[in-house]
């Protein structure tokens, strides 16, 4: 199997630095995972709470390696006709019409039925051939000759049957089409699968993948992420934002705010020209961070104590 010879992939540290240039700040573990996935040609299954940058990881890898990103969004009921391939039925119908017209020419001079059938057999049959194949994302990724990044997003949303469909692709980088045969990848893609853990992924699938778990980031990492994504927010506010979000994550919420929410919040505060966090600002922008009314209601009474942790000297009041 051919390997990707990218200078960006020389080591995990290079990948990390490369990611940072593209605005994706990651931990060593994530960089190691991408490094190994590219070196060992193994798919990565990325799990973690929503909004920690699972999909973004695949996108950034595509940018870094300058490869096309092919994305397959999974949902309940996704089947091979939408994921793998579909026949171009309309064209197939037209083809049979054309064939019918040619039939006279073909069978001209044939003596008896046996000879006609014989001639028919020798006539090249392209009814089921690549010409009439409509490639869907998975097959498209097999066709990319320069290699590609294949992102199979939220694989936990798909049915169990669909997982079995993926097994062949993930272990051998090939797909079987009953009417044609096996299509092997021209250049094996780098595959990312993401899952939000709404159900357990089957062992067979997990076995074929490297398994990366992305947790909520540390304060340090998150501050760097905010700095890279929202550079205009000044130092003090950034620290406050991250500290507040971290303390929110300690509460029992239906959905704890993730990195994407932190970034959105930082942007909103920037638009509102907030210089520092105070109760009113937080109260009016809380819906950016928390997506359930219950969570907002549970948090509001706590705001004061969350904003004024014992050691920090944030003055409250507008």
């Amino acid at each position: 199997m051919n390997t990707l010879d990218f200078p960006q992939l020389a080591s995990a540290a290079d990948i990390k630095a490369g990611f940072e240039q593209h605005g994706y700040i990651c931990s060593d573990e994530i960089a190691t995972a991408v490094f190994l996935a590219c070196q060992l040609r193994k798919p990565i299954l990325v799990e973690g709470p929503p909004g920690v940058g699972k999909t973004e990881l695949a996108k950034t890898t595509a940018k870094l390696l300058e490869l096309p990103l092919i994305r397959l969004q999974c949902y309940e009921g996704l089947d091979e006709a939408k994921a793998l391939y579909e026949w171009k039925y309309g064209k197939q119908l037209l083809y049979t019409q054309v064939l019918k017209e040619k039939l006279g020419d073909l069978l001209q001079g044939a003596k008896g039925l046996a000879e006609s059938v014989d001639r028919l057999h020798h006539f090249g049959d392209i009814f089921y051939s690549e010409d009439f194949l409509e490639p869907r994302p998975l097959l498209k990724a097999m066709h990319e000759s320069e290699g590609s990044i294949l992102l199979i997003d939220e694989v936990d949303k798909s049915d169990y049957e669909f997982e079995s469909l993926l097994l062949e692709i993930l272990s051998d980088y090939q797909v079987s089409i009953p009417e044609i045969g096996t299509v092997k990848a021209k250049s094996s893609p780098v595959v990312f699968l993401t899952s939000n853990n709404t159900r357990d992924i089957s062992d067979a699938l997990k076995r074929r993948c490297l398994h990366l778990y992305i947790p909520f980031p540390t304060t340090d990492l998150e501050e760097r992420i905010v700095r890279s994504r929202v550079p205009d927010v000044d130092e003090g506010l950034r620290e406050q934002i991250v500290a507040f979000v971290h303390s929110l994550r300690q509460l029992d919420l239906k959905k704890a705010p993730a990195i994407s929410e932190t970034i959105d919040w930082a942007r909103s505060l920037l638009l509102l020209h907030a210089e520092q966090l105070d109760e009113d600002t937080v109260r009016s922008t809380l819906n950016v961070l928390l997506k359930f009314q219950d969570d907002i209601e549970a948090t509001e009474p706590e705001l004061r104590s969350l904003l004024n942790p014992p050691r920090s000297g944030v003055a409250s009041g507008a």
Partner: peptide
């Protein structure tokens, strides 16, 4: 550390 996270990718498959 790198070896540790590398091995954890290949061996441990849930949180």
């Amino acid at each position: 550390n790198q070896l540790r996270s590398g091995l954890s990718l290949a061996l441990a498959k849930t949180a």
